[in-house]
Computed example of a mutant assay.
Amino acid sequence: MTQASTRRSLAIVAALGLTQIVGYGTLYYSFSILAPAMAADVGLSREAVFGTFSAALLAGGFAAPFMGGWMDRFGAARMMALGSVCCTVLLSLCAVSPTGWLFGLAVILTQIATGLVTYQAAFAALVQHGPQSATRNITYLTLIAGFASSIFWPITTTLAAHFGWREIYLIFAGLNLALCLPVHLVLARGRARAMETVSGSLGAVPVEGALSPWLRRRAMLVVSLAFALSGFALSSLLVHMVPMLGAMGLGAAAVTVSALFGPAQVASRLVNMIFGARLSPTGLAIFSTALIALGGVLLAVTQGHVAGAVVFALSVGMGSGIGSIAQGSVPLHLFGSQGYGAIAGRMTAVRLVASAAAPAFFALAMERLGIPVSLLLNAAIGALGMIGFALVGRWVRQGG
């Protein structure tokens, strides 16, 4: 890769990093902070508002394969530009919704559109821009995007002290329009055709998958299931982290300990950027899932002791950070760059469906079985995901 093409790739990563911070911050991380005000305003209970958000995430999962196919056909950058317009309109629709049912519909449509502007689309854009450098660029991108929660949680909290949630959503709609749309439009222009097709003007060379064609269907099923199990284990812990730690006796310290999740997530991506070349993408997925499972086991064994809770938050955060990289790099490594959007979309769909269902199941388990047993069961689910990744990694080592 020439110095000029390297600079162009880094510029694209930086630009996409900005849109990922804004996208995840305005469309995902802000919701939990604004949800109580939303519920009171539109006449719904908090449970109904969060239930609507879960349903929206589920709908986004079902839409992911279709979106992946559109990215392959029309170019990921073009779809991201369309997504920015859709998110702007839908955030505005949320803000002006006079009734609970219209608000719920707008939330669901917003989360479906989110799939056009977040990781699934950004990873596809990087693969289409430069398949050979995509794994490295995905790592750089997740490092930048990892600051989304650290930036937008305090921004949203500060705005909530001065504005209503409707005004905040209009501000967030403006950010998607003013910041994200121009970036995505520039990347979709003719001078950046490599963002849309691996045969673009920059001469990008497609990446061949590590698996033989006769193994691909079987591997797709196994890897998708492994990502679903891993996503289930992570989502169970992430959604319930603060109240679970509080129930285990940490009290006010539960928030402080949980806050370690974000920095650990970013730090793990930085470490992977420096040392990650030693692990294959399937190895990264195994390591990520192992950290998530290990964190749950340690918390269960230490029974909520502060030291155990700290290690738990750090371990889960690091597992989540590395897992984001694996989500983008594993499909590319196993199946190649041709049709990457559709392949990654199918994997994303299974993972999101499992992640959307996980919080309810884990809450039921904690109620019926207690927190320690639930944590151990959740770790066992993660371990099954590790077995799936390890099996596919073995197929690769045996020659695909």
Rank of each mutant, 00 (worst) to 15 (best):
L234G: 06
R189V: 03
A264G: 14
A233F: 02
R269G: 09
L211M: 07
A178Q: 03
G231L: 09
G249M: 03
G262Y: 10
V266N: 02
V205R: 15
A233N: 15
V223Q: 08
L260I: 07
V222G: 00
R191N: 08
V198N: 08
L279T: 06
A194I: 00
F163Q: 11
A264N: 04
R191W: 15
F232W: 15
I274N: 04
A228C: 11
R193S: 15
R218Q: 09
A277K: 08
L225M: 12
F227Q: 03
V255P: 10
P213R: 09
V271N: 01
W214T: 11
L159H: 13
A228Y: 05
G174T: 07
M195S: 14
G174L: 09
L238N: 14
R189H: 04
L202Y: 07
A267H: 03
S201V: 05
L279H: 09
L170V: 14
S258D: 10
L229Q: 03
L260S: 06
Y169D: 02
A192M: 12
L279I: 11
M244W: 02
L202S: 10
W214E: 10
A194Y: 05
L187K: 04
A192F: 13
T158F: 04
G276R: 13
A192T: 03
G231S: 14
A233E: 13
L215E: 11
L215N: 15
F163N: 01
T158N: 08
A204Y: 05
A188Q: 04
L170N: 07
V198D: 03
L221T: 07
E196H: 10
G164L: 07
V222C: 03
F163W: 13
A259P: 00
G249D: 07
G190S: 12
P182W: 12
E196G: 09
E167A: 12
L179M: 13
R191Y: 12
L170Y: 06
A210K: 02
E208S: 14
L170A: 07
G203E: 10
F172S: 00
